[in-house]
């Protein structure tokens, strides 16, 4: 499972597939204040990207993958943590 839900934090790791978009969306709906830990993320399906963009939760850790980090920093709504 590439999604790990903690109290008020969701960790996205490795590859988040399209099937997981729904659970991600539901969890974010229930936890609007949650922060995103993307440090171990390598890729996420566009459906998940869309969810993150729409939800606009703060990112507590950007991906280590510089290429992905650049994309996400440019795409996710900027928000001070």
């Amino acid at each position: 499972m590439s999604l790990t839900f903690a109290d008020n934090r969701v960790v996205l790791a490795d590859y988040v597939t399209v099937e997981e978009a729904e659970s991600l969306l539901e969890w974010l709906l229930a936890h609007p204040q949650a922060s995103l830990d993307l440090s171990a993320l390598k890729h996420l399906h566009a459906a998940n990207l869309q969810v993150l963009m729409a939800a606009g939760n703060p990112v507590s850790a950007w991906p280590a993958d510089p290429d992905l980090a650049a994309w996400l920093r440019a795409s996710l709504p900027t928000q001070e943590k």
Partner: peptide, 17 residues
């Protein structure tokens, strides 16, 4: 970058697929 035309709908109304 990825962007969305206009503001996003409320999260509850978002069709993630």
């Amino acid at each position: 970058r990825a962007r969305h035309e206009g503001p996003w709908p409320a999260l509850g109304e978002l069709d993630c697929y």
